[in-house]
Amino acid sequence: MGLLDKLFVAVGFKKRKVKIICCGLDNSGKSTIINKLNPKKIDKPVDPTVGFSVEEFEKNQIQMTVFDMSGQGRYRYMWECFYQKLDGIIFVIDSTDDQRLCVARDELYAILRHKDVESTPILILANKQDLDNAISPADLTTALHLYALNAREWNLVATDALKGTGIEDGIRWLSDSVVKKVST
């Protein structure tokens, strides 16, 4: 972004454009979360994502392009095709799926090890926190070994995608982190 573009963004004449990938295992709530963020799709029914879909909307004074990636095993290889020039990552965890928590952790660390996302802020959404069998955010932080990420900018936020609880807080954090990263 050139100096003039930065000035126009700072004054509000031009919206900052960012590219975000939303990934996680299948059935974690990725598409539901993205629909809650997109004013045009708030109450639309959600089908499982096959491959990926692209959503564009404005949030927190930022023009976002969000790539909603399928979490099915046969499509996860596609995630890394979107890592170049990525501004932010949303990784969604199904907090009730303790059987696949180690798979989610492995996929998360595969993303974090990729050279194209070394300095990319990552928002981890601990979804389905409204359910009785949900693993707490503190226990997820331990199970996912997130304290080992001390050199990376990350945040874990408890969410309930169906009600929208926690999603705005998480996106606000990610927006602030992306703006800070892009401005430097």
Rank of each mutant, 00 (worst) to 15 (best):
R100T: 13
K19W: 06
A148H: 12
I89L: 15
D169L: 10
L108G: 03
T141N: 11
I124R: 00
K30H: 11
I33A: 04
K59Y: 12
A10Q: 11
S183D: 13
D68G: 05
E56S: 14
L140F: 05
Y75T: 04
T142F: 13
V92S: 04
L162A: 07
G73S: 10
V11A: 05
T120F: 01
M69V: 11
W79C: 00
V103I: 12
D5R: 14
N38E: 09
L162Y: 09
T120P: 04
W154E: 00
S28C: 10
D132M: 09
S70G: 14
R16I: 12
V179G: 01
P48G: 15
L123R: 01
K6E: 04
Y75E: 01
H114M: 10
V92W: 02
A148C: 13
A10V: 04
G29Y: 03
A151D: 13
N27T: 08
C23E: 01
T32I: 05
T159P: 05
K163S: 13
G2K: 11
D116F: 14
A10D: 09
C102L: 13
A10G: 12
L156F: 09
L3Y: 04
L174S: 05
V92Q: 09
S95D: 05
Q61T: 09
F67M: 10
D26M: 06
P48V: 03
I135A: 01
C81K: 15
L144R: 07
T32V: 11
G166Y: 03
S70M: 08
K30C: 09
K15H: 06
F57I: 06
N60M: 11
D132R: 12
L144N: 02
L125K: 00
E153T: 09
T142R: 14
M64K: 06
G71Q: 01
P45D: 01
R172M: 10
N150V: 07
K6T: 11
T49C: 15
S175I: 05
K19R: 14
D160H: 06
A10M: 08
I62R: 08
I34W: 00
I171W: 12
D87C: 11
Y147K: 14
V117Q: 06
N27V: 07
G24E: 03
D43V: 07
D87W: 01
L131Y: 06
V179R: 07
D47F: 08
Y77E: 13
L140S: 02
F67C: 05
I33R: 00
S31C: 15
R113W: 08
A104F: 09
T120Y: 00
E107N: 14
T96C: 15
K163I: 08
I93E: 01
L146H: 08
C23Y: 04
I89V: 09
V179Q: 03
F82L: 10
M1C: 10
A151G: 07
A143Q: 14
R16F: 08
L162I: 11
R113L: 10
S183L: 11
G164W: 02
A151C: 10
S136Q: 04
T141L: 05
I20M: 04
K17N: 13
A158D: 08
I62G: 00
T159A: 03
R74Y: 08
V54T: 13
V46Y: 10
I89H: 00
S175P: 04
K19F: 05
R74H: 10
Y147R: 03
Y83K: 04
M69R: 07
